[in-house]
Simulated scan of single mutants.
Amino acid sequence: MSSLTLGLLGATLLSLLIWLVLLLFWGQFWRTDQRLRGTPPTRWPSIAVVIPARNEAAVIATSVRSLLQQNYGGDLHLILVDDQSDDGTTDIAQQTAINLGKQAQLTIVRGTPLPKGWSGKLWALSQGIEVAAEVAPDYLLLTDADIAHDPQNLSQLVAHACTHHCALVSLMVKLRCQSLWEKLLIPAFVFFFAKLYPFRWVNDPQRATAAAAGGCILIETTALEKIGGIACIRDALIDDCSLAKAVKSAGYRIWLGLTSSTVSLRAYTTLDSIWQMVARTAYTQLSYSPLLLLGTVIGMTMVYLLAPISLVTGLVLHQVALAGVGASVWLLMAIAYTPIVRFYGLAWPWALTLPLIAVLYTLMTLDSARRHWQGRGGAWKGRVYP
């Protein structure tokens, strides 16, 4: 065996060790068992739902309808903040409420121009929360305009929050997974997120790990006020995790889990659409650090790419040990990836695609850094954030 082959074998053995650590000691991130569980409270608290919407005509009717038809026992009011849409988003939302005979439960706020130092979504949320204060709700539900909520979603969120004394409860809603590119990349998006923020660690009050999913966040109004309101994260591009960190750092308990019944309506039918979503904030996640970027590229290569390289090289060179270690690592990563693949209703062979997926996500991260260096790293819905 040549020195080059020995070096590859040693590196792949290290990859094997990394996967054993990830599977056994990294918060069981690969499992999909963090689900809402709670007992209905004796009194259902009041809720104000704040929905920032910017050009969401294609999905807003479904979203608003799902919220107005919630099976919820407490007071519920929707506040839609029109973030300068030009596609009739608010007219569709208003007509949806009228058709249901629930126009009194919907307030539409015309958003004002974005001030310096704010991201668009957070400024819209801030305006909605200010209007919500007039009805003094016990909780706020911060949700996106492209989410279809299960009729029981609010009841389950509140029951979990009350039972487990959580100030913030968030759901990673089930993302659309129908097109070829969605099947290849969307389950992996959740998988990588969970590896970065293991849900069990997020839900453990003894650990500092904090995260949330911005599509569905239930938060106690008093907790939000204590951390300084939404203004405390006004310029955050990864606003959901920033909010969760602020809440947990203030001593409150938070919870993050999965749901299969509340779903995202956003379609990602092309590679470019998913690429744009990831590249918008990937380099932000690395704190705009070239060193962290380099470490990420090396780490992704070590963790995900050495296995197939070693397997193929071992087979070609008839090096049984090298091929065997490569196959073992690939099997371990497929085992880790299988639960989320099954959660999205895909056949198990999709779990074998993780090395290819890792290559694509690494390229997206590199592109995110390139955009940042060119001064357009935070581009989203017609806006560019510094």
Score class of each variant (00 low, 15 high):
Gly128Ile: 01
Ser119Cys: 03
Asp146Ser: 15
Thr143Arg: 11
Ala133Trp: 07
Glu130Thr: 10
Asp150Trp: 12
Thr163Gln: 05
Leu141Lys: 11
Gly117Tyr: 00
Val135Arg: 13
Gly128Trp: 13
Leu168Met: 14
Ile129Asp: 05
Cys162Met: 14
Asp150Thr: 02
Gln156Glu: 10
Ala124Arg: 06
Met172Ala: 12
Val135Ser: 09
Ala133Asp: 15
Tyr139Lys: 02
Leu140Ala: 03
Ala133Asn: 14
Ile129Ser: 05
Asp138Ala: 11
Asn153Lys: 14
Cys166Val: 05
Ile147Phe: 07
Trp118Tyr: 11
Val169Trp: 01
Cys162Val: 15
Val131Arg: 12
His165Arg: 15
Thr163Asp: 07
Ala133Pro: 03
Leu122Arg: 03
Ala161Tyr: 10
Pro151Cys: 04
Trp123Lys: 04
Thr143Phe: 08
Glu130Trp: 01
Leu157Ala: 00
Leu140Met: 09
Trp123Ser: 09
Ala136Gly: 00
Gln127Phe: 04
Leu171Gln: 12
Ala167Thr: 01
Val131Gln: 15
Ala145Ser: 15
Val169Asp: 01
Glu130Asp: 12
Ser155Met: 10
Ala133Phe: 01
Leu142Glu: 07
Glu130Cys: 04
Ala159Arg: 02
Ala159Cys: 00
Leu171Gly: 00
Thr143Val: 13
Ser170Asp: 09
Ser155Pro: 02
Thr163Val: 02
Ala161Thr: 13
Ala148Cys: 05
Leu125Asn: 07
Gln156Val: 02
Ile129Val: 14
His165Lys: 14
Ala132Thr: 00
Leu157His: 03
Ala167Trp: 01
His160Trp: 10
Val169Met: 02
Trp123Asp: 04
Lys121Pro: 00
Ala159Gly: 07
Thr143Gly: 13
Gln152Arg: 15
Val158Glu: 01
Glu130Lys: 11
Ala159Leu: 06
His164Asn: 14
Leu154Val: 06
Val169Pro: 05
Trp123Asn: 08
Val131Tyr: 10
Trp123Glu: 05
Ser155Val: 02
Glu130Tyr: 10
Thr143Asp: 10
Val173Gly: 01
Pro137Asp: 12
Val173Lys: 12
Ala124Cys: 08
Asp144His: 14
Pro151Arg: 15
Ala124Gly: 05
Leu142Thr: 14
Leu171Val: 00
Ala159Tyr: 04
His149Arg: 13
Ala145Lys: 13
Val169Asn: 08
Ala124His: 05
Ala148Phe: 11
Leu141Ala: 07
Pro151Thr: 10
Lys116Phe: 08
Leu122Pro: 08
Met172His: 11
Ala145Trp: 00
Gln156Ala: 10
His164Leu: 06
Ala132Glu: 06
Gly117Glu: 09
Asp138His: 10
His165Phe: 13
Gln156Pro: 03
Leu168Trp: 01
Glu130Val: 02
Asp138Lys: 12
Thr143Ile: 12
Val169Gly: 10
Leu141Thr: 12
Ala132Trp: 04
Lys121Ala: 04
Val135Phe: 05
Leu168Ile: 08
Val135Ala: 02
Glu134Asn: 13
Ala132Gly: 15
Ser119Val: 13
Gln152Tyr: 03
Val173Met: 00
Val135Cys: 03
Glu134Phe: 06
Leu157Ser: 00
Cys166Met: 01
Leu142Met: 14
Lys121Tyr: 04
Val169Gln: 07
Leu142Gln: 11
Ala124Leu: 07
His165Ser: 15
Ala132Asp: 06
Asp146Met: 09
Val131Leu: 09
Gln127Pro: 06
Gly117Arg: 03
Leu154Gly: 01
Ala161Arg: 09
